[in-house]
């Protein structure tokens, strides 16, 4: 029986890899069934289960929270997202990152930045050292 190689990966790890006789995936425009020898296709996935029917007839369920599905005649690649994504969610995350940066710049006086203090201390110590060295040389 013809099989198709299935690779399911996310940005953080390889989730599942193996051969299957049939793959079902929750495409954005509807459920997709992919058999070996499928035409090259690329689509976005909605959150849901990717089902792989293995050679021994067993089914494998892998949950994906969205992503991209790429089909080549002998390989199916699922590039899974690691989190539920959406335009609005992304937007909120972006705003948060921006706010953090702005706040950091604004309250420079509020709390003494530890890392900064450390850096200043280190440079002060270096200065003292070189002064001491100079003194020794003069003597």
């Amino acid at each position: 029986m013809a099989t198709i190689q299935v690779d399911i990966v996310s940005a953080e790890q390889e989730i599942w890899s193996g051969a299957g006789t049939m793959v079902f995936a929750p495409g954005e425009v509807g459920e997709l069934g992919i058999a070996p020898g499928h035409t090259p296709l690329i689509t976005r996935l909605s959150p849901g289960d990717v089902r792989v029917i293995k050679e021994d007839g067993e089914e494998e369920f892998i949950f994906v929270s969205g992503g991209i599905l790429e089909v080549q005649p002998h390989v199916v690649t699922v590039l899974s997202d690691t989190a539920v994504r959406g335009h609005d969610l992304d937007e909120t995350a972006a705003l948060e990152a921006k706010k953090r940066a702005e706040e950091k710049l604004a309250d420079s006086a509020a709390e003494m930045d530890y890392a900064q203090a450390q850096a200043e201390l280190a440079s002060a110590i270096a200065q003292i050292r070189s002064i001491e060295k100079l003194r020794k040389l003069r003597k």
Partner: peptide
């Protein structure tokens, strides 16, 4: 870079030892 006076438009800190992609999305999107 705050000290350096660069134009910092976004920031992410405290990723810990197991960085998650999720935490980076916002900053990268900007």
């Amino acid at each position: 870079f705050k000290r350096y006076g660069a134009n910092v438009v976004s920031e992410v800190t405290d990723l810990g030892d197991t960085p998650q992609l999720e935490e980076l999305i916002g900053a990268v999107k900007i």
